[in-house]
Design a protein around this nucleic acid. Sequence first.
DNA 1: GTATCTTTGTGTCGATGTGACACGTTTTAT
DNA 2: ATAAAACGTGTCACATCGACACAAAGATAC
Lengths: 240, 240
Amino acid sequence: MMNATENINTWITHLSAKAKMSISVDCVIFGYDEEGLKVLLIDCNMPSYEGKKSLLGDLVEVNETLENAVTRVLQKRTTLTDLYFEEVKSYSDPDRHPLGRVITLAYYSFIKISDYKIHDTEDKHLEWISINEIPDLAFDHQKILEDCYLRLKKKIRTHPIGFSLMPKKFTLMQLQNFYEAVLQIKFDRRNFRRKLNSLDLLIDLEEIQDNVSHRPAKLYSFDFKKYNQLLKSGDLNFAL
Amino acid sequence: MMNATENINTWITHLSAKAKMSISVDCVIFGYDEEGLKVLLIDCNMPSYEGKKSLLGDLVEVNETLENAVTRVLQKRTTLTDLYFEEVKSYSDPDRHPLGRVITLAYYSFIKISDYKIHDTEDKHLEWISINEIPDLAFDHQKILEDCYLRLKKKIRTHPIGFSLMPKKFTLMQLQNFYEAVLQIKFDRRNFRRKLNSLDLLIDLEEIQDNVSHRPAKLYSFDFKKYNQLLKSGDLNFAL
DNA sequence: GTATCTTTGTGTCGATGTGACACGTTTTAT
DNA sequence: ATAAAACGTGTCACATCGACACAAAGATAC
């Protein structure tokens, strides 16, 4: 019987094998291209979920952190390294996985779809699906995806994480389209531009669009240097 | 060797015993009384951390969710049920726990210290410590506490979670003291009152303080009913 | 019972940010 | 030359925010 004080942080002397379980990470990999916001999903062929799609995830190995595991999954599935990702929350229903007790931690990441290349030709089962056309997913992945999407929407309004998904040179309209696609809301064009200008994080490249059959727009780039300075000094005041 | 597609969500057929580990929850139990913001800590007598204090946590059992485990820990340590708590993040350094591989999920809760009673007389090692006098803690609990405190401060500015820690009848000055203690910042009295009034969530009880040797203040209570309505309708616009 | 102490309660002004809103400009295509 | 398409710009009303000072209420001391 446990002493009143005894717990994982005080007096116990060994870890019972009975209380061990599997941990996984599940990544909601958001991607953006000019068609809109998409999510990378894979076919799930596990009995009882056959035909459904699922998020990308894997078991955490005994000698790695959860962040290591996420990095591993992201690299395997996108070939990209150094991706931005963020922990969202845990899912721990004892019955959530048919193979047994698996607690999972959900993460989301966000990449430029044009940077993405299929890593392995065997991965025919990987697919970008529009955020508006998500089918029924296996396990509790529907809920995970929802929670991660909410988190992304909250994050992107207060942190300029979206700019690395823009082309190097972009127009204000492309930027607005990006925010409208991710947040699924419309902005007033004039107010959006006023806001972005007031942040003073865009560099006017003094160039204009080419090959468009209408008045060409001015091109901008994002001032990552200034952004990082502001971030360090704590004076970043981004809000959309 | 793993097939390109094989992972926890697709084709594997069994969970390897080798990849199993222990999971714990650690709770930062914040408490408030008129002396200020405190944290409930316990003595840690585990070799290599002897003499240090630690957060309250426990191993997650195979048949319970993380939330169940948190509820269990909170009830054991405070005797209180139905406490508010929130997941913060995971800590998964393979070397973070001397007994072996233990991934932990951090949660914080927030209670009225006057509601708290020592549950078990053996728990002489439990103590409320002022947020400004936190000693060195065992494991990575320093970091966990910091992260949870940051989260609490962020949360309390946008959600009126603090009102259940007030007496049933309170003065605006008591409320301001509460926010100042938790956030460790000062508010202008007039602006604070204007803000709170504009939220329209306080009920003027038309009573005044008693037994004070100065001008007595008006007493208010929190309109939980209206708050819950606003919460449901999504019109809650709380920000301090 | 008057003076003093302590804490309460209250309003204004200037600055800043936000939502709503319309028209002339630039380029290409015909 | 004209039409089509998207670009680029400014104002006004309104709400919010920080800064700031003084009179009122009750208790206490003399």
